[in-house]
Amino acid sequence: MNHDRAFQKLMEFYDGELAASEAGEVRSHAAACPECSNALRSWKEASEAAGGLGSLRAGPDFAVRVMEGVRGKDLAPADFTRFFQWKTAFALGAVFLFLAAAILRQEAPQGEGADPEVVSVPPGAESMLFDENEFGREEFLAALFEGGEETFQGG
């Protein structure tokens, strides 16, 4: 194996990512190559320095605190999802009812809180029944109470 190829594979060799046959070739080359040996040494230094992080341990109450948080959720994840869906449906239902009530209130203001001055009769409805100026009302009433087709026709 030439140097370029070996150097390209060197880090994979260092990390144990190469197949045995290829690893053997890289090892043979690196043993005789100062540049590859130096690179391997420098990575070993980096690994040893990073090893300092390995001393890091979670505090003694770490798991206890996480589990307090888990219990605060009170439900297993699957149940929690179902609970959330139920809550969402409930909230949407409440919003719908609120909107429906508001619309009904707008359409029918005679109920509690409505203005007593407002009369909910369509405009002109009265005059449709009895218009003082409308021709025939007096005559119609006279004919009705006094009788006789002739009287009515005379209008």
Binding site: L56, A58, A63, V66, M67, L75, A76
Partner: peptide, 27 residues
Amino acid sequence: SVVRGDAEAYAVIVRRYQDRVLRLCFS
């Protein structure tokens, strides 16, 4: 087990991975 509702079983997972997750977060 946890997904089936045994939330307490999650503590085993936490203890198993707490140092590793902490080291990653620290880094």
